[in-house]
Amino acid sequence: MTKPMGKTLTAIALAAVAFGTVASADESASLVVNGDIEMVTRTAAPAHLSDSLDEVISGWVFRSDETQELQMDDFDNPGMIFVDQALEQWEMVEGTKDKSCASCHGDVEESMAGVRAVYPKWNDSQEKVYTMAMQINDCREMGMGADKWKYTGGKMAAMEALISVQSRGMPVNVAIDGPAEATWEMGKELYYTRTGQLELSCANCHEDNYGNMIRADHLSQGQINGFPTYRLKNAKLNTVHARFKGCVRDTRAETFKPGSDDFVALELYVASRGNGLSVEGPSVRN
C-alpha cells in the first residue's frame, strides 16, 4: 500500500537542511511545526483497518510543497488568525448566566490539552456520541444561557481550531468500543455506502484510490486529523461536517445535514481511521 512520495520527501529533506537539523529522505520524514511540534504524518494503520490499509497517511503528505510549507510555521498558517479570534471569544462573557468559556474552563492551554485527540467521544449524560461542536453548543446553551452557533459556521470552526491547537502533535485516539461501538459501526457502514447518481463511497476515492490523481486533484486518504482545515480554495477554516457535505454532494447525492446522526457517526469512524496520526488542526490544505 505504500505509495511513492519522492518529491515531498525531497522538500522535507531540503527544509530540514535549511533549519540545520538532521533528517534523511526516508518515508518516516515528518512535519515539524515551528521547528518544535513533531507531527506523525505516516504511521501503521490501527488494528481495525488491518484488512484494508497497512499505513495511515495525513492529508498533508499529499499536498504540494508550497501548501505543505504553509503549515510548518504558525506565522505562515492562515488558520492561526482564527485561533487568535477564538482566544478572545474564550474570555467573552455572553448569555443569561454571564459566563465565558473561561469562567468554567479557565486557561484554555491547560483545560483543553488532549481534548481534540479523543473527540468524537461517548457522552454519558446525553447517552450518545458527542462531537466537539455538539459539546461547544451544549456549553453555550446550558452552561452560558447563550445562543448556539451554526454547526459549520465561522465561530464554531474558530473555537474548534483554538481547542485543537492545544492538542497539536498528540496522537488521535478516539474510542470505538464500549458504548460508542454502535455509532462507530453506523459510520463504517456509511463510509462504504455508494451514494448518489455517481455511486461513489468514501472508500472508492480515499481507500481504493488515494495517491491517484482525479483530474487535477491528488486523492488523499481523507483523514480528518487536520481539522478544522484552512483551505486555500475558499480561504477560510472548514469544519469536518462541511467537508463531508461537499464530498457527498459531489457524488450527485442528497447530502446529510451537518450535525446529523449520520455525519456524527461518520466523523467518529473517519476519526478512528486516523488513530495514531497527530492532531494537526488548524491544518492547511488546498
Partner: peptide, 24 residues
C-alpha cells in the same frame, strides 16, 4: 467498478439533484 453508469436513472442510494446536494 468505481466507474459511474452514464445511462442509468434509478436504483441509486440518496440520489440528488445534480450537484446541488438537494433531493431531486
Amino acid at each position: 467498478t468505481v466507474m459511474p453508469a452514464f445511462y442509468k436513472v434509478e436504483g441509486f442510494i440518496r440520489p440528488g439533484d445534480a450537484y446541488t446536494g438537494k433531493a431531486p
